Simulated scan of single mutants.
Amino acid sequence: MSPVVLKGVTLRGLEVFETLARTGSVAATAADLGMSAPAVSQQMKNLSTALGVDLVDASRRPMVVTPAGRLFLVKAKEALRALRAGQRDLKALDLSDMESLSLGVIEDFENEVTPLLATRLAEAMSQCAFVLQTGASHVLQARIAARELDMVICAAGDVAPRGTIALPLLDDPYILAVPKGVSVSRGLASLSDLPFLRRDLDQVMGQQIEAYLERAGQTPPRRFEMDSNQSISALVAAGTGWTITTALSLARAGRFASGIEAHPLPGEAMARQIVLYATSDWAGGIPDQISDLARELIGLHFTDPGLEQMPWLGSQFRVL
Score class of each variant (00 low, 15 high):
residue 93 L to W: 08
residue 93 L to I: 06
residue 94 D to P: 08
residue 97 D to K: 13
residue 97 D to G: 12
residue 98 M to I: 08
residue 98 M to C: 10
residue 98 M to T: 08
residue 98 M to G: 07
residue 99 E to S: 12
residue 99 E to A: 09
residue 100 S to N: 01
residue 102 S to D: 01
residue 102 S to Y: 01
residue 102 S to W: 01
residue 103 L to Y: 06
residue 103 L to S: 10
residue 103 L to H: 06
residue 105 V to N: 09
residue 105 V to W: 11
residue 105 V to S: 12
residue 105 V to M: 12
residue 106 I to N: 03
residue 108 D to R: 01
residue 109 F to N: 04
residue 110 E to N: 03
residue 110 E to D: 05
residue 110 E to V: 04
residue 110 E to C: 00
residue 110 E to I: 01
residue 110 E to H: 03
residue 111 N to S: 08
residue 111 N to D: 08
residue 112 E to M: 05
residue 112 E to Y: 04
residue 112 E to W: 03
residue 112 E to G: 02
residue 113 V to L: 03
residue 113 V to M: 01
residue 114 T to G: 02
residue 115 P to F: 05
residue 115 P to I: 07
residue 116 L to S: 06
residue 116 L to E: 12
residue 116 L to M: 09
residue 117 L to K: 02
residue 118 A to Q: 12
residue 118 A to D: 06
residue 119 T to G: 10
residue 120 R to K: 13
residue 120 R to G: 04
residue 120 R to Y: 08
residue 121 L to C: 07
residue 122 A to R: 15
residue 122 A to T: 15
residue 124 A to F: 15
residue 124 A to Y: 15
residue 125 M to L: 15
residue 126 S to W: 05
residue 126 S to Q: 09
residue 126 S to N: 04
residue 127 Q to P: 02
residue 127 Q to Y: 11
residue 127 Q to C: 07
residue 131 V to D: 10
residue 131 V to I: 06
residue 131 V to E: 07
residue 132 L to A: 00
residue 133 Q to I: 00
residue 133 Q to M: 01
residue 134 T to S: 10
residue 135 G to A: 04
residue 135 G to Q: 04
residue 136 A to Q: 01
residue 136 A to P: 00
residue 137 S to V: 10
residue 137 S to Q: 13
residue 137 S to T: 10
residue 138 H to S: 12
residue 139 V to P: 06
residue 139 V to G: 12
residue 140 L to T: 03
residue 141 Q to R: 15
residue 142 A to D: 13
residue 143 R to V: 04
residue 143 R to S: 09
residue 144 I to A: 03
residue 145 A to N: 13
residue 145 A to G: 14
residue 145 A to C: 09
residue 146 A to I: 08
residue 146 A to R: 15
residue 147 R to L: 12
residue 147 R to M: 11
residue 148 E to Q: 13
residue 148 E to M: 06
residue 148 E to R: 12
residue 149 L to N: 10
residue 151 M to E: 11
residue 152 V to I: 15
residue 152 V to N: 11
residue 153 I to F: 10
residue 154 C to L: 11
residue 154 C to P: 06
residue 154 C to Y: 08
residue 155 A to C: 14
residue 155 A to T: 14
residue 156 A to G: 13
residue 157 G to D: 04
residue 158 D to M: 12
residue 159 V to H: 14
residue 159 V to Q: 15
residue 159 V to K: 13
residue 159 V to W: 06
residue 161 P to S: 02
residue 161 P to Q: 03
residue 162 R to T: 00
residue 162 R to A: 03
residue 163 G to W: 02
residue 163 G to A: 02
residue 163 G to Y: 02
residue 163 G to S: 02
